[in-house]
């Protein structure tokens, strides 16, 4: 079976290292706040925010705004669609590995 077939199954949105990392963190837990992402992934605010926005626009994550003292702190949670897409993407990756080795 050609690799091409699997390439089609890969999720374009989850091709990005950052977005894949964000989703990996989210599917394993519940709400994750912005600061935790930043610490865990070592990214700048702007970069991280733009990736999170893309995931949010695709309805892969939902967000909740809270307050820590006076500052707003946004938390994110994976949606059902996001979880499904992530699973499909990981499965496609695993298939690629399995059929290439």
């Amino acid at each position: 079976m050609s690799v091409k077939k699997y390439l089609n199954q890969l999720d374009k949105l989850l091709d990005s290292r950052v977005r894949l990392a964000v989703m990996s963190l989210l599917v394993a837990t519940d709400w994750v706040d912005f600061t935790t992402f930043k610490d865990e992934l070592g990214l700048s605010d702007g970069n991280l925010a733009s990736h999170l926005r893309k995931l949010e626009e695709a309805k892969y994550v939902e967000l909740r705004k809270g307050f820590v003292g006076r500052k707003t702190l946004t938390s994110y949670r994976v949606t059902e669609l996001g979880r499904l897409s992530f699973q499909k993407h990981v499965e496609a990756l695993a298939n690629m590995v399995r059929n290439n080795s």
Binding site: R17, L20, A21, S24, L25, V27, A28, T29, V32, T36, E40, V90
Partner: peptide
């Protein structure tokens, strides 16, 4: 990477 991220903060 997915595996290590999932294990690091999710659980």
């Amino acid at each position: 990477d997915i595996r290590s991220l999932m294990s690091r903060s999710g659980r």
